[in-house]
């Protein structure tokens, strides 16, 4: 299940909904992303008062659904959730939730990491941070590209 929304979400309620009535599930791995109160600007950390997330309505949902389907092809999942927020958020606010349920933990952990790595490099979202220096567009990190690239091998060849 994927959702792109402005409003907050409840992690506990989402996990409960994911597992309800599915007693074959042995584990749920989750990742929650939050807004940090500091960000690197021109080499030094600056306080962040807010963040605005822009996205491409339509393409975002399409890409999230595709990658969720890909995770389900690669791992034996009994359920998955991707929730990503947009709009204005403040430090401590939740940005993203990825939860993957499976009979055993390895598939759940791996699928969760795969989805997060992919979200970082291919989901059409852009973060604008409000700092003392004004609005600053967050830049991509080479480590994110490297993290996503390792999934380009097929699971069998890993």
């Amino acid at each position: 299940m994927i959702r792109v929304q402005e409003e907050d979400f409840d992690i506990g309620a989402e996990i409960a909904a994911l597992t309800e009535g599915k007693t074959a599930i042995g584990g749920v791995a989750t990742f929650t992303g939050l807004v940090r109160d500091m960000a690197p600007v021109d080499g030094s950390d600056q306080p962040v008062s807010a963040m605005t997330l822009e996205h491409y309505p339509g393409m975002t949902e399409k890409k999230l659904a595709e990658i969720e389907a890909e995770a389900n092809r690669r791992w034996p999942l009994d359920g998955s959730v991707i929730i990503h927020r947009y709009g204005r958020l403040e430090p401590g606010d939740l940005i993203v939730l990825v939860a993957c349920a499976s009979a055993h933990r390895q598939a759940a952990f791996d699928a969760c990491q795969f989805l997060m790595d992919w979200l970082k490099t291919d989901a059409p979202f852009w973060k604008l941070e409000d700092t003392d220096a004004g609005g600053v567009w967050v830049e991509t990190r080479a480590t994110d590209d490297a993290a996503a690239a390792r999934w380009n091998q097929t699971p069998e060849s890993e």
Binding site: Y56, M59, K62, V96, K120, T121, D122, P124, W126, T140
Partner: peptide, 29 residues
């Protein structure tokens, strides 16, 4: 660049009925 909401390379053909988007590297998650 994306054509009709799929990533495409710059040599991708385009036509009048397409929806085309341009954007910087993405920073979600």
């Amino acid at each position: 660049s994306a054509v009709n909401q799929d990533y495409v390379p710059f040599d991708h053909p385009i036509k009048d009925t397409d929806e085309i988007a341009f954007f910087p590297p993405v920073t979600g998650g």
